[in-house]
């Protein structure tokens, strides 16, 4: 009986010791290690907390770019942590203890598309500025609740040489031109726009190519102004990231509806869905 009590005491003590020695997990962040390239809720919290104690001066947008990276490294250096630019558990816990995060305030500003900061030395209500596109943010949120659950920011991460407006305009063009096509066909239409930008015979900007007179049917018949869906946007993101299912095509046409004889003279490359892609 005494022996059992002794064992019980030892086991309890061991468990107690273990619970003390395990680092306390931050209650705020998720338990994932995040680094440059990451995007989403965790990054928003990281940026907000770093800004609260003055390390981060940039926009709180959920994109772990260089601005966040340098701020995190400076924080790690000042707080005696290994300086690696990775937000792991130890760094997150230290940061959570050293800062505050007004989650509701931050999420609200992002949802409404406002310009705002999250500094600890200025009253929080003085740090937000209503933005022009509140309506848009609300509208987009309503349109795509699922996407917003996972991605609280409106922007997508795309290669640095392209802008969010390029993405928006191309998604409109792809949706207007190829919404009934397979995914490959939608990426292909986006790739043709990008191939034209690189070709000396065409304008050198996205909107220049799209609005070139007589270039796209969707511009002529107004279908470019339809609201694009997520699939069209994803197709554009793939094309911006380098995919080109057309193998360098500059033109495409629907053989059933094409009225131009000239288009049939172009060297053809491949057919995707209802479109023939050509040089």
């Amino acid at each position: 009986m005494h022996k059992n009590k002794l064992i019980l005491c030892i086991v309890t003590s061991c468990l107690l010791m273990m619970s003390i020695s395990v680092p306390e997990r931050s209650e705020a962040f998720s338990n994932q290690v995040i680094e440059r390239g990451a995007y989403g809720e965790d990054v928003i919290e990281l940026q907000s907390r770093l800004q609260f104690i003055g390390f981060y001066k940039g926009k709180i947008d959920g994109e772990f770019g260089y601005g966040t990276y340098w701020a995190l490294r400076n924080f790690q250096e000042e707080f005696g942590l290994p300086v690696d630019g990775l937000a792991g558990q130890q760094t997150k816990t230290k940061l959570a203890n050293a800062s505050k995060y007004h989650k509701d305030y931050v999420q609200k500003q992002i949802r409404e598309g406002n310009r705002f900061t999250h500094y600890g030395d200025v009253p929080i209500e003085q740090q937000a500025k209503k933005s022009a596109n509140k309506q848009q943010a609300n509208k987009q949120q309503g349109n795509n609740k699922q996407a917003n659950k996972q991605a609280p920011t409106q922007e997508s991460q795309i290669p640095a040489k392209y802008s969010q407006q390029d993405l928006q305009m191309m998604a409109n063009a792809v949706y207007g031109e190829a919404r009934g096509e397979p995914y490959e066909g939608q990426v292909a239409v986006a790739a043709v726009i990008l191939n034209r930008i690189e070709d000396a015979k065409f304008p050198n900007t996205v909107n220049g190519v799209i609005f070139q007179p007589l270039a796209f049917t969707a511009v002529a018949d107004g279908q470019i102004w339809l609201t694009p869906n997520e699939r069209a946007k994803d197709a554009v993101i793939d094309a911006l990231n380098g995919w080109d299912p057309t193998e360098n095509a500059l033109y495409y046409f629907n053989p059933v509806t094409a009225t131009s004889k000239w288009i049939w003279t172009r060297p053809q490359i491949k057919t995707i869905g209802k479109h023939i892609f050509a040089m």
Binding site: A132, Q135, K139, Q140, Q165, T227
Partner: peptide, 13 residues
Amino acid sequence: EWENATTELLSQG
């Protein structure tokens, strides 16, 4: 501000 305003216009259809 300019990009927000113009993106809003472009996306509203």
